[in-house]
């Protein structure tokens, strides 16, 4: 407690006169067609983006992908799209998910300006699914695509639990700036963009 009070006292002593919060109004970008923009950005950041009319078509599109065909162990958290080869809820420790070939999960919303997808992991049987899997497929409803990050944060409700903006497959450029896809997380990311 001593440290807390000392720090807070020092901070209050040091801070200058109060400055107003400027708000975030008036910022942002608008696209003619945010869904088209999102799909383009998703491809630009290294994801495979497939536009499909409905969940059945999403399932077909996913099954046609090599990562899906080669997957021996997979988990799907989207009913009707892909399949689980085992029950992830029956796995006690997330460590047992190491070696998972494919994880399929839904996005709550997606952002046209930067291809970021909001993933709420609270319904996941294990939080680690989105990052421990070798490959991932994200199901995005076209109706949930917003123009920019300001719009996204207007819609998100933060509660207890873990959620993230996921921008595509895991990346690094730490060796001589050479871009390498598949650093620690997913080696590839398929975005299944479902109309309606």
């Amino acid at each position: 407690m001593a440290a807390r009070d000392e720090i807070l006292a020092a901070v209050r002593r040091g801070a200058g006169p109060a400055v107003e919060h400027p708000g975030t109004a008036g910022l942002g970008v608008r696209f003619a067609d945010p869904v088209v923009q999102f799909a383009e950005m998703a491809r630009a950041v290294g994801s495979t983006c497939l536009r499909v009319p409905d969940l059945a078509a999403a399932d077909q599109a996913l099954r046609a992908l090599p990562v899906s065909q080669q997957a021996r162990r997979s988990v799907s958290l989207v009913p009707g799209v892909g399949a689980s080869t085992f029950d992830p809820a029956a796995v006690a420790e997330p460590h047992a998910l190491d070696g998972l070939d494919l994880a399929v999960f839904p996005a709550g919303l997606a952002v046209a300006e930067n291809a970021a997808m909001w993933i709420d992991t609270r319904p996941f049987p294990h939080q680690a699914l989105y990052v421990v899997a070798e490959h991932i497929a994200v199901v995005v409803r076209a109706s949930t695509v917003v123009h920019d990050m300001h719009q996204a944060y207007e819609r998100i409700r933060h509660g207890k639990g873990f959620a993230l903006f996921l921008g595509g497959p895991s990346k690094t450029a730490d060796i001589e700036q050479a871009l390498v896809v598949g650093a620690h997380g997913a080696r590839s990311c398929a975005v299944l963009l479902v109309e309606g």
Binding site: M41, A44, V45, V111, E113, N114, A115, A116, V131, H158, F162, A163, L164, F165, L166, G167, G168, P169, S170, K171, G185
Partner: peptide, 8 residues
């Protein structure tokens, strides 16, 4: 345009 993992 965005970091890959922006974890909350």
């Amino acid at each position: 345009p965005s970091s890959i993992y922006t974890s909350h």
